[in-house]
Amino acid sequence: MNWSAIKAIYVTEMARFFRTLAQSFISPVISTSLYFVVFGAAIGSRIQEVEGVSYGAFIVPGLIMLSVITQAISNASFGIYFPKFIGTIYELLSAPVNFLEIVLGFVGAAATKALFIGVVILGTASLFVDLEIQHPIAMVAFLVLTCLSFALFGFIIGIWAQNFEQLQLIPLLVVTPLVFLGGSFYSISMLPPIWQTITLFNPVVYLISGFRWAFFGLADVPIGLSLLAIAGFTALCLAAIWWIFRTGWRIRS
């Protein structure tokens, strides 16, 4: 393993994050506060409790997932797209590194940034509602796995994208709807039966359900299934990236 290459990529990617630290810190704080004002106060005043948990607290896991997934994708996709766009990718391609090392550097940094934002949101949320985390280890594991798997997914988008519009396309048209419809702000059991079945095809449901279980011990789907889903998604993304580097798809002519 070329550890120094992984470190070099990771440090450089993190440096970009630190250059805009204030922005990275303030924007999740503001957006989380807004969600609490809108969903927590306005809607929460009508829905008192969901399965014994106050609505304000109930939406916290979904809210964290929403931001973490979005951030992991955008950081990782931009991280690898930018060198392609400005041409500095030549250096990565000519360096003595394999696909795993490049991925560890870029995805590791993107996941770290997303994790940071997840923690900031958790901190902000705890100012609004009382939070008790029933399974802290599982909570951390779900958070880290989500950051990693969606950073991997973002990395694929960054390689696939040939312009800035395409970079936004999948997060906007696929990921955001899936996250919103994945039970971020409601329990699946609140849906009509037919939609409950349809929702089970949305992979994000399993993530949010598992994450919420770690907080409150409540889950829409069995926890084992949630773990299996996220592990499967991670493996799928890794396999896709391995294939990309093996064939040089969209990066090596």
């Binding site: 070329n2 470190k7 070099a8 990529i9 360096a95």
Partner: peptide, 8 residues
């Protein structure tokens, strides 16, 4: 420095 690190 990045380039040096990248090349191990």
């Amino acid at each position: 420095r990045f380039s040096r690190g990248l090349f191990g």
